[in-house]
Simulated assay, not measured.
Amino acid sequence: MQVHTLDKAAIINELQFGNGINHAVHEGRRADFALILSMFSDDVRDNTPVEVVDEVITNDTLLRQRFELQQPQPLRSDQSSYAVSAHQAKQFHDSGLSGAKLIHYLTPEPLVYLPEQTHDLPEEVYHNLSGHQRRRLADTQPRQAIPADLYNQLISAQRHDQMRVQV
């Protein structure tokens, strides 16, 4: 047998030899056994069956659309939450607890009603802050730091002003 024929054979495991390897072991033919083993592929990926698994992208939004579910219950309130809560209270007064539960399951109200415009602080903490601290919380743009050469700029401005006055 020629070498190129053996390369094209793509011998991967002992199943491709049939009983040849079994006879070599039982009859004590070490040379045949060594030759057969040397022809096996040494790449693990050849010996192990590998399936390509397609990764399915699932997220909360896709699952809600697929199963036609409502939006999740909001964690905190906003301006629209008060109308939902009022509608739920009206439904409770009109048709009792079962009607209120039904409305809650259709359009759930938020878990907590936090005060608005307090920068996620409790109301008593926010009102205990000084005006300067409240203003600092309201600033959305970061404050610019004082330039490193401020002293030199002030001195040179003062000198230019003195020169203008003397001329």
Rank of each mutant, 00 (worst) to 15 (best):
135 R>Q: 15
81 S>W: 05
107 T>H: 11
18 G>R: 13
101 K>V: 13
111 L>N: 14
76 R>F: 08
63 L>A: 07
52 V>C: 04
110 P>M: 04
156 S>W: 00
136 R>C: 02
74 P>S: 15
29 R>H: 13
106 L>H: 09
159 R>H: 03
149 D>P: 01
107 T>F: 14
152 N>W: 00
110 P>I: 01
157 A>R: 04
139 D>Y: 11
137 L>V: 03
8 K>T: 05
112 V>Q: 15
161 D>Q: 13
50 V>W: 06
119 H>G: 11
67 F>S: 01
38 S>L: 07
35 L>C: 11
87 H>P: 01
33 F>Y: 14
48 T>W: 10
115 P>S: 08
149 D>L: 00
97 L>V: 12
161 D>K: 12
86 A>Y: 05
102 L>Q: 12
147 P>R: 13
111 L>V: 11
8 K>H: 05
88 Q>G: 06
83 A>N: 13
7 D>R: 04
20 G>F: 08
91 Q>F: 01
102 L>R: 10
146 I>A: 06
142 P>Q: 11
80 S>P: 04
42 D>C: 05
46 D>V: 07
118 T>F: 01
122 P>A: 04
24 A>W: 07
7 D>S: 02
102 L>W: 02
13 N>L: 02
54 D>F: 13
121 L>A: 03
130 S>M: 06
154 L>A: 02
124 E>G: 06
156 S>N: 07
66 R>E: 12
93 H>F: 06
134 R>H: 04
133 Q>G: 01
9 A>V: 00
155 I>H: 00
114 L>V: 03
12 I>E: 04
59 N>M: 10
145 A>T: 14
35 L>R: 15
11 I>R: 00
118 T>I: 02
29 R>Q: 10
33 F>H: 13
126 Y>W: 10
136 R>Q: 07
50 V>A: 06
161 D>G: 09
56 V>S: 15
123 E>G: 07
46 D>Q: 12
119 H>Y: 14
112 V>N: 14
152 N>P: 00
48 T>D: 03
21 I>H: 12
139 D>G: 09
5 T>A: 03
49 P>W: 13
113 Y>E: 09
98 S>F: 12
58 T>P: 05
137 L>Q: 02
6 L>E: 08
100 A>I: 04
57 I>N: 13
87 H>R: 12
